[in-house]
Design a protein around this nucleic acid. Structure first.
Lengths: 230, 230
DNA sequence: GAGTGGTCTAGACCACCAA
DNA sequence: TGGTGGTCTAGACCACTCC
């Protein structure tokens, strides 16, 4: 007899029963009370384990309906989105950046719509991020000066826009998109690659309670890969 | 006096205190016992709320060290990686696929190394996935016939390789990479786009307890964007 | 209506690790 | 080595939803 079941041991055992098809996809598994009896632990412990697996997408749970093995598991991958400085340093390189453009302008419709902006000028910033002095990523950013007027006083050549915003304008939510694009003339020029080279693009809009803060488009140097593990 | 604090209300309140800088980055926040007193609830309830925020990357917790507001929050985005069929159907389109190639071959070194394979032939499969009859994604897959010999008997024109594997060879872990690439002649031909067009690429290797199952490279049609929310 | 999961409690013991 | 978070328990009530 082992000491006592931990939620992790229960999670592992349930995972095993799923992967070995003892409990098949779509099938109802025993209730929490029954499993607690089987594993000799409290129901809360079973609950913690099953909740974890439901969060991971392997189980589907419903009150009264019971717990089922997901038929078509939607794998959930968790991506870390670090500050670019950290991202570069994590690769063992020295981070630096160059402010290329900083001006109040009227955003294009696409950006204005994404940020829910009305008429008026907003801050347009272009920054080149470098690893060991070679171009790593080109950032094209718009900052809502209505929600974040203080940025007009910031020295963005000293602290880059991203880090300034992290420090001064925490966001509560954001939309992120990942895509691929052929480098525009501007991007390729900044990154020092041929026009048309495929670049990995992250588009992000962040908000603080219904008020948009910033919209940014990051074009990574060719060869960049974002990795994760599931 | 409200009924009683739920872990979600505590999570929201802590989030508010962080975003309004009542608790500043790097700062130690009160202990669970103290917060439980303040919110008038059990420590377990506070624990649940703080654990949730720690998982999200907003707090850092250490036994004896206490709980701190993360100085440089690493945002964690959760990506859903559905079956291609579901992905297409979710966009309101009709899914179909075409098996282009299916043969036992010697995998290139890159693939062999990624899958930890020795000498010998493995199954090479190429599939074109379509939405409403137009090319959506080109899949280039290798399947380890040592770990999954049954696939040699499968009719992959009937059920595509991905769905066959989901049904017959559940995996326990996997590595995923996201990148951008210029379409090769083969990819552009299959997708019906110009050679050199930027395509979004997902590379994935899956394992079942130390044994590799499959390695796949998915090239999405230009314009594809993978979205998420944080 | 009844059975399931969702949550809270009050208490306890333990593991880790900063002081 | 003491204080913090991590976890388990036994019980309770509630909310949802299937029958």
């Amino acid at each position: 007899m082992t000491k006592s079941a931990t939620w992790q041991s229960i999670e592992a055992e349930v995972k095993r029963r799923i992967s070995e098809r003892i409990w098949k996809p779509g099938e109802l598994i025993p209730g929490e009370t029954q499993l607690a009896g089987e594993f000799g632990c409290a129901r809360a412990t079973v609950n913690r384990a099953l909740r974890q697996l439901a969060d991971a997408g392997l189980l589907e749970r419903r009150r009264k309906g019971g717990t089922r093995v997901t038929r078509y598991p939607v794998r959930k991958a968790t991506l870390d989105i670090p500050m670019t400085r950290k991202e570069v340093e994590q690769r063992g390189a020295v981070y630096s950046f160059k402010l290329l453009h900083q001006q109040l302008e009227t955003p294009p419709d696409v950006v204005g719509k994404a940020m829910g902006l009305g008429e008026g000028h907003h801050l347009h910033i272009k920054t080149l991020h470098m690893a060991n002095g070679t171009p790593f990523m080109f950032e094209d950013r718009w900052v809502n000066v209505t929600s974040t007027p203080d940025i007009l006083q910031a020295d963005l050549g000293e602290t880059n826009a991203n880090e300034w915003l992290i420090e001064h304008a925490l966001f509560t939510q954001g939309d992120i998109g990942f895509s691929a694009d052929n480098a525009t003339r501007e991007q390729s020029g900044a990154l020092g690659v041929e026009e048309g080279q495929a670049v990995f693009v992250i588009t992000r809009t962040t908000w603080n309670n219904e008020k948009s803060i910033t919209h940014v488009r990051l074009a990574y140097s060719p060869g960049f890969e974002m990795q994760t593990h599931i």
